[in-house]
Design a binder for these strands. Structure first.
Length: 108
DNA sequence: ATAAACTTACGTCAATAACT
DNA sequence: AGTTATTGACGTAAGTTTAT
């Protein structure tokens, strides 16, 4: 199965193209008192996790686009090289034929 | 006209290579 | 060792071609 869940709980019934948020997100309206002395309430942790995930997805999205662009270019390059070599080959075959011909007629 | 088959581009995940 | 970048594999949507 390709659609395996990631670190945020495998929800097999959710289409892959939907953006999932970490399950650590608290229900609407629930406000936790920030633990005294720290800036790391569960909410803040969850928000930070979401922010990190979205940033990661954004970066990877762009990386994937670039990767495909490079691959396409590479393939185009190869195809071009094939065309060039095919032409060279054709020319060489013609040349060989001509030389053989010449040699034959000389031999008579 | 349209249903089915094929193509193209995309976003995501996971593995791993490259970097610090 | 932890973090970030790269890329193959997969599923999806939209576009195009082909057969009826």
């Amino acid at each position: 199965m390709a659609v395996t869940g990631d670190e945020t709980a495998a929800t097999g019934d959710m289409p892959a193209y939907q953006i999932r948020t970490p399950t650590t997100t608290l229900p609407q309206g629930v406000v936790m008192a920030a633990s005294p002395g720290t800036l790391h309430s569960p909410q803040q942790m969850a928000e930070e996790a979401t922010r990190k995930r979205e940033l990661r997805l954004l970066k990877n999205r762009e990386a994937a686009r670039e990767c495909r662009r490079k691959k396409k270019e590479y393939v185009k390059c190869l195809e071009n090289r094939v065309a060039v070599l095919e032409n060279q080959n054709k020319t060489l075959i013609e040349e060989l034929k001509a030389l053989k011909d010449l040699y034959c007629h000389k031999a008579e």
